[in-house]
Design a protein around this nucleic acid. Sequence first.
DNA 1: CACAAACGGTTGCGCACGCAACTGTCTGGA
DNA 2: TCCAGACAGTTGCGTGCGCAACCGTTTGTG
Lengths: 154, 154
Amino acid sequence: MTARSTRGASLRLSGFVPFRLNRLAVEVSHHLSVIYRGRFALEIPEWRVMATVGQYQDSTAQQVAASTRMHKTRVSRAIAHLRKRGLIERLASRSDRREMHLRLSRAGRRMYAQLVPLALARERALLECMSVAERRGFVTGLDRLEESLGLRKL
Amino acid sequence: MTARSTRGASLRLSGFVPFRLNRLAVEVSHHLSVIYRGRFALEIPEWRVMATVGQYQDSTAQQVAASTRMHKTRVSRAIAHLRKRGLIERLASRSDRREMHLRLSRAGRRMYAQLVPLALARERALLECMSVAERRGFVTGLDRLEESLGLRKL
DNA sequence: CACAAACGGTTGCGCACGCAACTGTCTGGA
DNA sequence: TCCAGACAGTTGCGTGCGCAACCGTTTGTG
């Protein structure tokens, strides 16, 4: 792998933010997946649904999709799996019979309670590479980006 | 979507860094994909290969995979597509006949030269939401994370 | 009141993906 | 020198994904 010599604009990937974000997200996701895959046989979409419904009771598939930025079919199938495993329940909404309110079942809450501390520990370990000031700066960047991309208000 | 009431640890997704990173990466990738999909009919893996080979001539599939964190089969197929379209060329290595050195063809270089300014402009637009100081803080965070995850030396 | 358009959610379909197994090549230790 | 194991890259296979089309429901505009 030799240095590039082409005249004209070049793209240094290692400094290109979209590239870095993606690579980082893949890596971090992978690290996390060891927990919920190995320990609880959850796939990524299912884990995300669990986390969302665990936080927001009575959320709908729609809202899970918007919040996680997963395609609605992906959400739909993840919910189907979780229902089959008895981890979440669905109740038809009274006000709008199209939508279904989601909530963790008793078993789901039990799993969620085990999952959360592990996930938080993993996050803590991830961020240990930064000083407090650095962490603050990094998080501020995340805030700005999310706001500018309209991810804030989901 | 009502506030949660469960006793015990809870996970605020909107503040959970792995979640935020992933959502951000998906969104940013999507924004970028508008360029290379619509304009050049490149899929994500192909764009990544183009960008890597564009920067590092004579890189191998192996190195592309390591650098982008894509699975080697994904890289292999992306290279096959790009070769079929005449955008990259392959030469067997003299020193190790297992590996194949990759380089952009003339057509590939032409496309790359068009692609790069668009990608850089997109990145600039993305980062416009931050002040110079904020940008520096954010990038430092990326540096730290990559270093700690072993992504730095690829 | 009616009907078209929008919306929440599901499903059929084709495709790209990851896994594992493979081929061919290189390496290192007995 | 030989052979087992590692490695670069490809491919068959099953699966999960996104797209588009769909169903049933709600909304809003005439």
